[in-house]
Simulated assay, not measured.
Amino acid sequence: MQNSLMVIVPYRYEGTWVFDDERVGLIKEPFVAGIPQMIEVMVKEIPHPEQGFRLLFGATPFPGYQLELDWIREEFQGHWYAWKEKNLEGWLCPALFKYFWQAPLKIYCKAEPKS
């Protein structure tokens, strides 16, 4: 059974937003194709986010979520999502399936400082 709410800790590495999740075999997994721009908007109020911040996410809304991503289409074994409120789109690579059985129609996210 999958968790309904997950957390990763993105950080900057060599100018790129990446994250590690040894539990699922991901080390320095990069965010690409529009997702870095979304991250930049989300972390504006977090001190020193490049050193790492908590990113909570899930396929259902949760208290305090900051953004709602809507599924657009599949491409290159990954999936495109839109943050309609900010008019941004981004591609999530197949690492998405380390967290979801299938690409969710919506993904809800919240960025917060690392404790």
Score class of each variant (00 low, 15 high):
A33K: 11
A33C: 06
G34T: 05
I35R: 07
P36C: 11
P36H: 07
M38A: 03
M38L: 09
M38T: 03
I39P: 00
E40R: 09
E40V: 00
E40A: 08
E40H: 08
V41F: 07
V41C: 10
M42N: 04
V43C: 06
V43E: 02
E45W: 02
I46Y: 10
I46V: 13
P47C: 02
Q51Y: 09
Q51D: 14
G52H: 05
L55D: 04
L56F: 08
F57R: 00
F57N: 03
G58W: 05
G58P: 00
A59K: 14
F62L: 09
F62M: 10
G64W: 13
L67V: 14
L67D: 07
E68N: 12
E68F: 02
L69C: 07
D70P: 03
W71F: 15
W71I: 06
W71C: 02
I72S: 10
R73M: 12
R73Q: 13
R73C: 10
R73A: 14
E74C: 08
E74T: 11
E75Y: 09
E75A: 07
E75W: 06
G78T: 04
W80K: 06
W80I: 02
A82G: 08
W83T: 05
W83Q: 06
K84I: 15
E85A: 15
K86Q: 15
K86S: 09
L88Y: 03
L88C: 05
E89I: 05
W91A: 06
W91M: 03
L92V: 04
C93N: 12
C93H: 11
C93G: 15
P94N: 11
P94V: 01
A95N: 07
A95C: 10
A95V: 09
L96Q: 08
L96F: 05
F97C: 06
F97M: 05
F97N: 08
F97R: 04
K98W: 13
K98P: 06
W101V: 08
W101G: 05
Q102M: 08
P104V: 10
L105V: 04
I107Q: 03
I107C: 03
